[in-house]
Amino acid sequence: MATDTVKLPERPHEHAMDAVGTEPVRPVMSFYVYEWPVRIWHWLTALLVVALSLTGYFIASPPASVAGDTSALFTFGQIREWHFIAAWLLTIGVVFRAYWAVVGGEHARLIYYVPFWSKQWWSDVFLVVKWYLFLNKGEKWVGHNPLARASMFGMFTLGSLAMVVTGFGLYAEQAGVDSWLRGAFGWTLSLFGSSMALRTWHHAGMYLLLAFSAIHLYAAVRDDIMGRVSTVSSMISGWRTFRDFHDE
């Protein structure tokens, strides 16, 4: 925990009165959670997941045919090329983010493993599950709550890694049989049995990441309102603010 940067509270309005003038407005408790490289990575990845899903969907279900001179057209090829460019960028992001998990702060590591054997962690997960089921008033967590951490690790970290690996498996198919790409990722064909099965699972992986994105978005907005903690804005500023706690 020592690596965590802690904001020293500023109290410019400590003695100011609110609109009605009954209570002083107190500064709220804040923590620096998301370092700037993580924030940039987060939004780039979000953008790339949208781009990859769109182009990927069209690769599986091509848009209506275009009429015209075949040799002058590159419509479907263009969609595929965008997919490949976005995929390379996402891959660079995945590698960079893993690097940052090593050199970055404590919170940067959370989504790379779960303390599966820790009883404390499981009881924390249980607390959060109960909170989402409206069975308790909820704990507050500076970084991801334990359940969020588990879903990010399982659905996003492993999910995006699986997409990169299966994606490169498919990408390697168009490279020669003796290419380095086939050497590095050709094993995915053996793993899934056939190129067709590899495609099916890569396609299903897209839906896994989209499902994660939907849940992620819902939980973030909900936490902002129900948990009275900054979530969406914290991925822009880096600061997590607890509206109900005050530095005294």
């Binding site: 925990m1 020592a2 965590d4 802690v6 408790m29 923590f31 959670v33 924390d124 989402y132 409206f134 008033k137 704990e139 507050k140 967590w141 500076v142 970084g143 819902y218 909900r222 309102i225 129900m226 009275r228 903690v229 607890f242 509206r243 109900d244 706690f245 530095d247």
Partner: peptide
């Protein structure tokens, strides 16, 4: 879930000041 959340939030509007400090970081 969002619907239930909204109802619970309306019911518990005054509960803000009763929490323990957050976990997982040092203020």
């Amino acid at each position: 879930h969002a619907g239930i959340s909204a109802v619970v939030r309306l019911r518990d509007k005054e509960r803000h000041d009763t929490h323990l400090p957050p976990k997982g970081g040092t203020p």
